[in-house]
Design a protein around this nucleic acid. Structure first.
Lengths: 192, 192
DNA sequence: GTCTATAGCGCGATAGAC
DNA sequence: GTCTATCGCGCTATAGAC
């Protein structure tokens, strides 16, 4: 079922969340995944290959848990769907913490590692698009451009608040409250 | 005038912006500052001491360039002061790029390095307070709590947008536009 | 306070057997 | 595909002279 490659990527996400990109040691990754270092180099070529693959793995997984959880919440009003989707990034579950931390790390690393940028931009664009669509579902009359701008602000705010949450500056609850108000503020503006 | 210690810190800010916290090599720092590695360890004890001192140096410097530039723009209306202050973080000058990059790096590092957290939280609190005061100058009738919440959102958004700007996701201009609209949105909300 | 020299080893990466 | 063994560089940190 879970092939070795996937096992390694899961371990990498866990480890990046725990130690950061800079703290990721290939040997430690091997231990965490219960494989040899040789196998890791066989599958991913080099250290930066591990990072690229992990970025992709994480953004896929985030897409999945988002879709799942919102679907399972049953057909709700569009506004709650938008709110819930954004709030999913602020939960004290292991996977969310892992994903958010690793995501922040990889974005930070992309400032100095060109090979990470492309994947990051793609994932960001997709995310912005999803949020823009949810906004459109709430306010169908609003044209695409302002909706996309609002989406960009909201996702950028998620990243900013995540940074503060994960570095201990604010609690999850505070982050959630600030996020909810931001949605309110943006929608009120678009509805004018 | 500029003692060796300061020269080292300036060089550290430059290098962190260029290579990241992860890429900072003590030997390279010594070369950049034109001193010996021994002197660096004499002044800062160890690598993480360098980081702590640089964080403090950077946030002091940011406070200074903010105050200076806003003062020099002559007595303007409070709203422009607020806007200008927030937009100062999005400029293609070397010092701003340096400060923003280093700040982002240090925030990311704080997720895994407890010794950085305290300084980071203090600096963030001061920053939030400054923005909250500027908001109060625009809308004196608004009570402190909602103003502070708006300030938190705005500064968190600055960090989020900076991350995207510096990792190549958006241009400075786009970041500025998004930021300006955010100010508009927040003020409209508070004025209601 | 400042430099030079070097210890010491952590860690990425590869070779080669199975 | 997967493992074991190992090489050798790169980097932090210290010792000791001036």
């Amino acid at each position: 079922m879970a092939d070795r490659r996937t096992v390694i990527l899961e371990a990498a996400a866990r480890l990046i969340a725990r130690r950061g990109v800079r703290g990721l040691r290939v040997e430690e990754l091997a231990a965490e995944a219960a494989v040899s270092t040789g196998l890791i180099y066989y599958h991913f070529k080099d250290r930066s290959g591990i990072l690229r693959a992990t970025l992709e793995f994480i953004s896929d997984r985030a897409g999945r848990y988002t879709a799942d959880q919102v679907a399972e919440a049953a057909p709700a009003e569009p506004r709650s769907v938008l709110e819930e989707t954004l709030l999913l990034e602020f939960q004290e579950t292991e996977m969310v913490r892992e994903n958010s931390t690793a995501w922040g790390e990889l974005r930070a690393s992309a400032m100095f590692d060109d090979t990470l940028r492309a994947g990051l931009e793609d994932a960001t664009r997709v995310w912005n698009g999803e949020i823009a669509e949810l906004i459109a579902a709430v306010l169908p009359a609003v044209p695409g451009d302002p909706a996309y701008a609002s989406a960009q602000r909201l996702t950028a705010l998620v990243e900013g608040l995540s940074g503060r949450w994960l570095s201990g500056g604010i609690t999850v609850e505070a982050a959630r409250d600030l996020m909810l108000d931001a949605v309110d503020v943006e929608l009120a503006r678009l509805a004018r």
